[in-house]
């Protein structure tokens, strides 16, 4: 059996929030750091307004997971509306990053440590009001050490199509603001949990 560490990250939100972009930035950053990466975005029939989800798997060896996973180490909840089917997939020992500004009531119960973040407010203060998903990503990376901030910024640059270049700087600020909102590595991604 493989001794590789394999980290599954589930993203969930509403179409238009930048979930697919943020997931792609994470996958690109991990690729830059030489990790094995697999990612798949899925969304409902509507491009905007419906559910939008993504799975990103990052590993330090060959990936064993299928493109859609039954169990995940982390979740990044950009909006909680479609979180319910995601919740039971989370494993203990993982982490759930949530934009608490958008919480309607309470988040369904799930395993994993909760890292609440006022992502919408932080994004607004960073003058990147549309980039709350990237604030969450910056915070997640900082809390886990899954990827470095430099790689995320490079991934961000790589991910933006030419007609979106003007958003590069504000998106970069969002990543940095998210990282700055977290004190340090609380859930190290590359340390193997005790079996």
């Amino acid at each position: 059996m493989s001794t590789a560490i394999e980290r599954e990250i589930l993203w969930t939100g509403i179409g238009g929030q930048g979930v697919q972009l943020a997931a792609k930035v994470l996958a690109l950053a991990a690729t830059r750091e030489g990790r094995e990466v697999m990612s798949l975005g899925t969304y409902g029939g509507t491009m905007r307004g419906g559910n939008t989800d993504a799975t990103v798997v990052v590993a330090d060896g060959p990936i064993q997971s299928a493109p859609m996973v039954s169990r995940a180490w982390a979740a990044i909840v950009v909006h909680p509306r479609f979180f319910e089917p995601v919740a039971p997939k989370l494993r203990a020992g993982g982490i759930v990053v949530v934009d608490e500004d958008l919480l309607e009531g309470t988040l369904p119960a799930c395993a994993g440590a909760r890292l609440p973040l006022a992502a919408t407010r932080i994004a607004r203060e960073a003058e990147a009001p549309k980039a709350a998903a990237l604030v969450l990503l910056g915070a997640f990376a900082q809390a886990t050490g899954l990827v470095g901030l430099d790689a995320l910024e490079a991934g961000l640059e790589e991910s933006l199509p030419s007609y979106r270049r003007q958003t590069l700087e504000s998106n970069r600020r969002a990543l940095q603001a998210g990282a700055a909102a977290v004190p340090g590595v609380s859930h190290p991604a590359w340390r193997k949990e005790a079996a």
Partner: peptide, 9 residues
């Protein structure tokens, strides 16, 4: 669908 849309390094 998964072959077409999954991204891998």
């Amino acid at each position: 669908y998964l072959i077409a849309h999954t991204a891998e390094a």
